[in-house]
Design a binder for these strands. Sequence first.
DNA 1: GTGAAAGCGCTAACAT
DNA 2: ATGTTAGCGCTTTCAC
Lengths: 337, 337
Amino acid sequence: MKIKDIAKLAGVSIATVSRVVNDKPGVRDEVREKVKEVIKEHEYKPNLIARGLSSKKSNIIGLLLPKFTAYYTEQVDAIINYCNQKGYRVMITSSVGRFEGELKNLNMLYKSQVEGILYFVGKMTEEKKENIEKINKEIPVVLLDQAIEELSIPAVLPDNYGGAVKAMNYLVNSGHKKIAFIKAPYYDLEGEKRYRAYQDIMKRNNFEIKEGYVQGSDYSIESGYKAMENILSKSDQMPTAVLASNDGTAIGAINYLREEGIEVPEDISVMGIDDIEIAKHFIPKLTTVKQDLYYVGDEAIKLLFDYIDNKDLKAKKLIVEQELVIRDSVRNLNDKL
Amino acid sequence: MKIKDIAKLAGVSIATVSRVVNDKPGVRDEVREKVKEVIKEHEYKPNLIARGLSSKKSNIIGLLLPKFTAYYTEQVDAIINYCNQKGYRVMITSSVGRFEGELKNLNMLYKSQVEGILYFVGKMTEEKKENIEKINKEIPVVLLDQAIEELSIPAVLPDNYGGAVKAMNYLVNSGHKKIAFIKAPYYDLEGEKRYRAYQDIMKRNNFEIKEGYVQGSDYSIESGYKAMENILSKSDQMPTAVLASNDGTAIGAINYLREEGIEVPEDISVMGIDDIEIAKHFIPKLTTVKQDLYYVGDEAIKLLFDYIDNKDLKAKKLIVEQELVIRDSVRNLNDKL
DNA sequence: GTGAAAGCGCTAACAT
DNA sequence: ATGTTAGCGCTTTCAC
């Protein structure tokens, strides 16, 4: 069934059918009803590809992810919901970490005539920056996870600096002075902000960052376990608390401590960042800083549509606040045990 | 840049450009090189929408999910990877649980001329069955999560019955006789199979399913907590082990037990199903049955392509085996403590 | 081996 | 208010 068939069946021209399909004015109610009837009876469904070609508007939003992991589900969920509800379709792409794949996928979206791209940056590189800048000249792009400081491209980011500050202040207010830190991978610019927050708060309080207190991770639970091991083995003074860059590494750290017979939070306090689902069910329930990822996704897609509607919009960088979630993994040293 | 511009620039016809773009024969090497050069220089990228209309082949696969949750990430990851690598794009859709939304999304995929649909069924209803049957007459559909017994539609399913049997046998071999069960939600047909396995194994061993031993859940951690509470309060004889329908409810159950001061696995053993990421990091490390979801997704997309290539293929229902993962949450009653 | 031309199924400008 | 028609950017016969 195509528009031509419906036109013939309804005894009108294809232009008229097109008008009623698209709810456009200029058709007598009587005729409109008749056409609608025929459409319904024959279950006519317009070919969106043809429509796209003709109208030069695809009604498709492109999504570009590095590897597809649980971290993205809420954001992607928000994006899909918003688009589907608005009558937009979303084309999703993931690059399994390899950069060539990412470039290929970016081009695929471009060739698909998507109206805008939501780009989850993941690991930022110079090459990537160039490509993003280039594509953004043709198609509106909104960045997630990481912004490009020097470029005027809209982005929505969690307030990682502010969130880490909140975490650190909570630790400090709970009486902790010897605080260790599990770092994000080096390429995560946003992770660097958390590290800066850690350093700033330590400095502001005149707490010394002892040797061995800062250990790296790749955000995995396993790397958190390893980092905790390093903190203990490489510090001559045991910390009373450790702030992990995400909940996963916090969980890994706790696991290591337990295996060593060190109680959390009695002996050492551990704090995470993210508030992933398991955080509130882990034992001890994880004290962390919440990042509302559904909200982040929602804001990002809205920003993208703003940007599509008004390409000249000043590129806006939206910072989403994080909020402290106090649970059981941090001990208040001011209290008696 | 469109094909016409390239043709002019290269001094050939658009047909020739089309041939080289699509790596088709019938072009002198010399000319082919020349055209490629021009394409490269001007970064010409073919408009896939136009190609789709002209060739009547969209190169798009549709994905239909109920709500988008962490459970789907691995499967979706596998699907996207496979498609992207094959030069296919994937259009993703999620229905936030509401059925009207699902029907709308199904039509959206249809109108988008997708070449095949991967349908994560979630909750099965009569209405849904009809719609699936109908759409499958036009577009190849492969079902995930749940099959429709009476319809000849390909599906790939985890072997939920077999998996639960493995879990139960492990419990039995570990000396457990008083085994409780946390059920899946009623609408999950696959969950029912796990329940049947539980009943069958209990019966085969002449173990009594005591009152209160079977409690419902909605798969959430919270509902597992609640189910465990019910098991304890409604049974006059405490079980020595409980099999949960998924890892989430197993974790909820363990949390409840710990709060009650009941040790796992010393006092009560708890076993899950799924092997979600946190399972191996939870304390105690969760004994469970592994369902390789990446594999499931991979098989599903392969099956879909088979189906697309050969629509008359006898609809195949692929059952993916599950495997026992022994960790620390089940006690062997045959051992001394 | 190469090009001209006829669509693909729509939308949108232009007539009427 | 309705119809005619010219594209949209490609692929694909069919001639040459």
